[in-house]
Design a protein around this nucleic acid. Structure first.
Lengths: 145, 145
DNA sequence: ATTCAGATGCAATAAAGTTGCATCATCAAC
DNA sequence: GTTGATGATGCAACTTTATTGCATCTGAAT
């Protein structure tokens, strides 16, 4: 969730056209407090048949490519999307409920990571760091009995 | 890669039948120094038409369920499979090359993680912790120019 | 008004994994 | 040894998630 973000400016800041659909997609992602799947986003926007599924995927790819949006993998089959880390949003781990598919953002300092000398010596290029915990959320735990 | 493992005993230790196919699947995973996709495993075993794709998926599900094998998500679409952590294999992060799809195991102490008070206070149940770095491996970096 | 590039839509397709049901193998009971 | 039950495996069809190819639209530049 981002209350400080001007989505139009965000899009313009990476030198792409802030089209209506791109804005809508980024808004859906930004106004949500947890990451969403492409299909979640599509369904949200398609309430009034206003966008095509393929367009959603293409916009997501673009926003990820421009580092405005973060593509987060789950233990499940679909990727989820959330606002990329920036000054207002520190990078943070996620929790994925393997029962209901809900994904939550965890506080950035629930875990502290120290990447020793590793990063300096790694022979390839590292673009991204992802950390995820899988389990059963409290709601599903309750339902279980 | 596991040189100390007796795969048959491993399978028996979780009270399931050590069938020929289960053994083959676990061996392929265990003899490999990096995680493989279900299709990699299938192709390795299917050289002489000796196993069905569905059987591979079902065996993988079973081995994951019994905690002998770890299902590792990538930035891509397929899951990868490696031996689950145990006394001989500490849990460790992975590196995934977004260019060629190769996944590598990183040294367990390339990063040190401190999960502050988080785990104690979390209202759900946590089964698994996954950490992955995505980027371009040194081979693909070379090819790029 | 015309043209051109980029954005979007639509249908078809691909990749990864799952399901339902048939068959096979193993083993205990008779 | 045959029978019957149980679990393992095979095969075809299907589902979900995502991608591709090509057509159409839109908006700025000329």
């Amino acid at each position: 969730m981002c209350n400080q973000c001007n989505y139009k400016e965000l899009i313009q800041s990476v030198n792409i056209d802030p089209t209506e659909k791109r804005l809508r997609v980024l808004e859906v992602i930004g106004n949500n407090s947890f990451p969403l799947s492409a299909l979640d986003i599509y369904k949200t926007l398609d309430k009034n048949k206003s966008i095509n599924k393929v367009t959603v995927y293409r916009i997501l790819d673009l926003l990820v490519d421009k580092s405005l949006v973060d593509k987060i993998s789950t233990g499940g089959r679909a990727s989820y999307y959330g606002l990329a880390p920036n000054e207002n949003h520190k990078a943070h781990p996620h929790f994925y409920c393997t029962s209901c598919g809900q994904m939550d953002c965890l506080n950035p300092d629930t875990v502290s990571i120290k990447t020793n000398d590793f990063l300096k010596n790694f022979p390839g290029r590292i673009d991204k760091f992802e950390m995820r915990m899988d389990g059963i959320c409290k709601n599903c735990l309750k339902k279980a009995h």
